[in-house]
Amino acid sequence: MASVYTLSVIAAWYLSNVCVILLNKYLLSNYGFRYPVFLTMMHMLMCALLSMAAHASGVVRKQAIKGRTHAIKIAVLAVVFVVSVVCGNISLRFIPVSFNQAIGAITPFFSALLSLLITRRKESTKTYITLVPIVLGIIIASKAEPQFHSVGFVTCLSAAFARALKGVLQGLLLTNDDEKLDSNNLLMYMSPVALFVLVASTIFMEPDAFGIFYQNCLNSSRFVFILTLNCILAFNVNLTNFLVTKCTSPLTLQVLGNAKGAVAVVASIIVFRNPVSSFAIVGYGITIAGLVTYSNANRRGKKAARL
């Protein structure tokens, strides 16, 4: 029964991840609701409401904030998290999901670079070598991408950088055992800060979004259904992320995440029928192979460090 539960959690995590990416792309590009900051704000609002409900119901054990310094650290992470999600959603306005996922695979490269610059933590030479095909694959895919867009490329690259920065800062700022929070508690405490930043950003960057959102809700029940489903899935990504880590391990989550990118690429091509050249496919393949190699090298490095 335990294995069935674990497989069910992994399947839910996969489905939520891929579906929320595809629905984001549909709303921001195909449907024409071109307000990525507002969409991120709605995601965060739903995440805040449902995470509080999960804690209130006792499904997730609540962890307390350990003072003012701890709260400031969480606020810093919230701002970086907002930047990563907003940039990722902006990129979906301009580039296909397949290309978005390929660029996002460069996150380990930024993680290794930022770890070296910020924490002075050095990886093994083999680990650094495995980052080469990841970058090479993205360069090939970018050159061969039929729907390449400079704004989409830069914002997606920025999202990958921000995700890597969040990971490094989380390890740096929340290193004390008393300060460590699971993903759901971290999300619950980050949500108010993230919501404040997102509301202010929406008012400044997308002032028409609120009116268009209201009109779309009045005119289309389909829009309301898709947006609500999208927001619920965004929360479910965070919930199942925590459950997968609990049932397996952080390393397994990383490996599954690498494979998830490949699934999202294929799903995007099938659903949106965006053109993909043979050279782009080669680039995607090289990047995915690099990610697998990187995961294995990283795992061996951690084992060697423990011995």
Rank of each mutant, 00 (worst) to 15 (best):
G88T: 04
Y284C: 05
V224E: 01
L49E: 03
A194G: 12
L239H: 08
V255G: 01
M46Y: 05
F33S: 04
K302L: 14
R121N: 12
L131N: 06
A2F: 12
S51C: 09
L92K: 07
L227P: 00
E179C: 01
S268K: 03
C247S: 15
A262W: 02
D182R: 00
I226F: 08
T287H: 04
L169K: 05
A259E: 04
S57N: 06
F110Q: 06
T202Y: 10
M1K: 06
C217T: 11
L15N: 00
I203S: 10
L195E: 07
T287Y: 05
A141S: 13
L181G: 00
D178V: 11
A200P: 01
A297M: 05
T245P: 00
I270S: 05
K260W: 06
S158F: 12
A160M: 09
D208Q: 14
C87W: 03
S29D: 13
L114R: 04
I129S: 03
L113G: 04
K303I: 14
T69H: 11
Q215S: 13
V20L: 09
I65S: 01
C156M: 15
L198P: 02
L165M: 14
L131Y: 07
F148L: 12
K303T: 10
P36V: 09
R68C: 02
F161E: 05
K66M: 12
A2G: 15
F213Y: 15
C47N: 11
V197F: 13
L49A: 15
N216Y: 10
A162Y: 05
L251V: 13
A280D: 03
T40A: 14
D177A: 13
T40D: 08
Q147T: 08
A304R: 12
T228P: 01
L116H: 10
